[in-house]
Structure formats: C-alpha cells, structure tokens
Nucleic acid binder design. Sequence first.
RNA 1: GGGGGUGUAGCUCAGUUGGUUAGAGCGAUCGCCUGUCACGCGAUAGGUCGAGGGUUCGAGUCCCUUCACUCCCGCCA
Length: 594
Amino acid sequence: MNKYRTHNCNELRKTSVGNSVTLSGWINKKRDHGNLLFLDLRDNYGVTQCIIDKDNSKFKELEKMQLETVIKIEGKVIDRSNETINKDISTGEVEVTIINFEVLGTCKELPLPVFSDQEYSEEIRLKYRFLDLRRKKIHQNIILRSKVISFIRSEMIKLGFLEFQTPILTSSSPEGARDFLVPSRLNPGKFYALPQAPQQFKQLIMVSGFDKYFQIAPCFRDEDARADRSPGEFYQLDLEMSFVEQEDIFDVVEKLMIKVFKNFSDKKILFEKFPKITYSDTMLKYGTDKPDLRNPLIISDITKLFVRDDISFEIFKKLVKKGSIVRSITIKNIKDKPRSFFDGIDKWAKDQGSSGLAYFTLEKNQKISGKGPVGKFFSEESLIELMKLTNAEVGDTIFLSCGKQSDVEKILSLARTKIAEELNLIKDDHFAFCWIVDYPIFELDELTKKIKFSHNPFSMPQGDIHNLDLSKPLSLKAYQYDIVCNGIELSSGAIRNHIPELMYKLFDIAGYSKKDVENKFSGMINALSYGAPPHGGIAPGIDRIVMLLANEKNIREVTMFPMNQNAQDLMMNAPSEIEESQLKELSLSLKTKK
RNA sequence: GGGGGUGUAGCUCAGUUGGUUAGAGCGAUCGCCUGUCACGCGAUAGGUCGAGGGUUCGAGUCCCUUCACUCCCGCCA
C-alpha cells in the first residue's frame, strides 16, 4: 500500500463509511470553531472535508497549519447527518475524522490566495504561476487542454496520420515573422533559428513518401503579444497530406473540428458544413479575413452612389472623385435609440483613429427620406438605390465610412463588432466556423509599390498550372485557405506548389532571382526536383481551439507557463544575462546599451 | 515604435473640490467559540499611496518625467 494515500480527495462516498483511510493533499480551507476544526483537503481530483476536535492531542498543532500546507491525514470515513450534507462537492455526503496527521510540505505566507474566485494582476499570477495553477478555473482549463490534445492525437491516428517530430534547431527563414536565433558554437558567426512552423519539414516529409503527417508542433515567432497571441511560442496541430485537393483537407479538418468541439463544449455549432467565403467577399461584407459569423451585420459598398447629382454630400463626393470608396453597415431596429447612442458610435470610431462614422435612418412619410445629421444630403431616388445596394428597408439605420479601401475595411470591421456587442446581437452560446478561400497570391506593398507575396510563397496557384497566365499577377488566386471560428483565425493552410519551375516564376514576380530562391530555400527546391507528390495541409492553432472551448478571451488562461507581454518569464527569470565565458564560447560580444 | 487603461497594506479594492492621524474585506498574529462548508465574534500588527521632480501654506488627489503590468495599432509568409 502506498504510504501517502489510500484514496484521492474525490473518491470517498457513502459506501466508504466506516473505512480507515489515508489522504494526502493541500489544506484548501479551514473553518476553526475553537474546539472543533473543519479542514478541506484538496488534490487534483477534488476536495474532502476532514474534521478534528480538541479531544485529539494533535488538535492544537493542526489548528495552526497555514493554508496550502501539504499534509497526510489518517482517519476514518464517517456519515454526515442530513442537514450537514454539502451538495456542492461530490464527497459531500461523508467526511473524514482525523486520527493522525503529518506535514509533507510546509507553506510560507501566501502572496496570493488559492481558495478565492477573485481576479489577480497578471504580474503576481505569472510570478507565482505554480500557486495560480492550483486555482480551480485555470486548473480545469489546463486539464481540458491536455484532454483536447489527447483526443486530437487519437483522432488523427485513427484517420491514418503518422506523428513525426521535426527539428527545433533549424535555419532562419527570410519570409514571415522575426525568428528566434540560437548562436552556433561549432560554427562561429552562424545561427540556428527556432522554427516559426515546421512548414518546410512537413513538405519534405511528403516528398519522403510518408503520405499523411501530423504533429502537435511548437512554433516560435518573435512578435509582439496580443490577448490571443502568446509571445514566444505556441502550438499547432500541424498536418500535411499527399495526393490531395483542397476539398480533401477541408473534409478532414471539418470532421475533426466538429468532433472536438462537440466533445468538449455544449455550445451549438451553427454550420455543420462550414461556409466557404472568398477572400474578396469577406473583405467586402465583413471588412476582415476573420469574420465572426455569429454577428448578423453586413457591410455593403455604395461608392457608386456618390457620383449622382441628387446627392449633395460634398465631402464624400470629393473624396470619391479622388479614389476613395464608401461602404456602409445596415442595422435594424435602432431608430428609437437616443441620439447619444449614435454619437457615441461616431466618437468611438474617431477614438479608433478613423475620421468617424456618418449615419442616418431611413424614414417614410410621404416619401422616403434620411433622418439624422447627413440624411438631408440624399434624394428619395438615391435612397431607393441605396436600399437596393444594401438590402436596407425603411426604418433601418445606415452607418457610412468613406476613405481609402483598407481604412474603410478596418473601421467598419471594428464597428460591426462594436455595434453588435452594444446591441447584444452576438450569440455567445454558438460556434460559427467558416473557410476563407481564394486568397490572392500577390499584393501591392503600399510603401514600396512593389508586388510581394501576400501569404505563403509556397502555395499553389489556381488555374492551369502548365499554362498559367502570369501577366496580371495581382489577380492570381492561390489554393490557400484559412479556417475561422467566432472571429478568431484558427489556422491557415494551402495546397503547396510542388513544381520548382513554377515556383521560380512566382518568386521572380516578387523580385527574387532564381539564385535567391536556391539560396534561401535550397532544401525545399532541391527536394521538389526529385519527384515530389502534389500535397497540401493546414495547421490549426491548439491554444486558440482550447481558448474557444474554455470560453476564455485570453490565451494565457489556457497556457500553463506563459510569458508576459514583454516576453519575460517572471517565474523563471527568462530571458536572463549570461556569463562572459558563454559569450566567448559562442564567439559573441555584446554592444552595451547606454 | 505609437495610443489607451491601471498602479494605495501580503491579496482585492475605496479614498469627495487639494485640507487633521490614508480606510474596508480577505490573509497574517493573538484570544473566544463543537456542525461549519465564503463559519462567527473581538483585538493586534502591517503603508517610501510605483519612482523622481514640480505647483501649493498644504499633494494619494493637480502638472511634468519615468518605470511596471495590461489592452490595442504597427508587426504576425
């Protein structure tokens, strides 16, 4: 028999009454009645109420024990009388009379209470993460994460995927995010990079003939943090398949996501067949490539109205003449909101750095007119045309934004969320998945006016790949796709370009010579020249999936040991300074900052 | 790199128009209490009000600088 426990703290039931037991755990809470002490003992599994009174010679000693001390209790399981049963815990019908106890781990005065539902500053939580992780909610989140990962792993294996590990020390990649670099001792002046994703390796695995690969892969990107983006590292369900088309990837991922989300959440999945939205459609209708489809509000383009002579909204007309666009959001049932609501939205938009949002409500007395600050600028005919373009009806309110396309998209995307939240239009108990498809391969760099890859340079262009018309590169689409849930981008993927000649051509358009490509992607290009299968894949973000399932808004609530916003681990003191001798060994010297 | 928010006891927070000795709950320490499950009651200790500078007869409160944490923009093929 184990010397620490015969049962865990969530095992004892009425059937155990009369048994002698040994329990070990943390002192979760004490209720001291002076001559009678209730003590809740907690472990990973649950809580058991233990009890001791002054007749026991150990009473005084136990009464003085700090919360969170680890103790072993020997005692007897006894029945609780009806009126003292605690229905909130599963061991609540019984309790353990303490006969003897032993301290296994002492505890200093706590910097943060464990038994409390209070919120604490992240600073203290991260510094004492081991205490924070004992707290119920985050403890359960981390357990959920473990279960989700196990579930995914077993589903992937069932689907015939093979799990492989890929190198953590690899080469720096010229495209994409900033790399974390590791100096090489044996190769002075040279650096490894931590992989931003196992992108090239998984393609090499396909070229190696393994057909279906997956990995719960750590990815390292040296980028600034957000609520849904940990600095440093995160995890992806990285997967790749050979001899597949886009639909084959969708099929695997849709089935997997539905299984995972049904298994681990009670929320309803809005579309079991995930809608496919083209990139250009989503940018128009939602202003973003990660739309929250729980939100019913839709954006419309009404630029062409502003050449009409019967609209006298001169500011917008002038801007449109110079190339600006006008888009609008239509909202139902808010015409009776107070003026302060509308002005509040306008002010909010200005605070977001935009030039604000114009608005008016469609009215009909004798004829249709616009009510609100800019309503008077519109004739009846122009409003009828606007109603056609926006699917608006009399009584609806229209918010308008005019400006550069990317600015209009950005502010209306934010406004769509803001307004829906204010009006409570977003159903919180739903998951709304969708695919974003048909991404353009190239885009124009606004600063340099040069053509650059808009996403993954290894994606396969759509169309006849043997006779591709490269004369209009900006209109080329790729077999590149994102999966989005509730406005959170879960993952990007693509059918890869496995034809070296075509890759050279595409890189050429983005300004890379054949030599550049061979230098930067030698491993890949070389491999693709020795019989590469058509292949493609995707990499859903594990942390974000768990975040959605745990109903958390912050990724650190589902990450065991996250870093803070400045990419510091307050518990381990990372990053830290290193010895001069270590630097020397690596042939490095530091330029000391002033 | 830029913008917003926050910073007062170990923890969570209050602190009025600038005005006496900066408060509460939890926690800690001590005492009382045999059926609690957020046990109750009483007492005690605990504060460079993030730091520095300024305005003022007087600053937790107003101004400037700075630091930390956080949210957002940039960035994230």
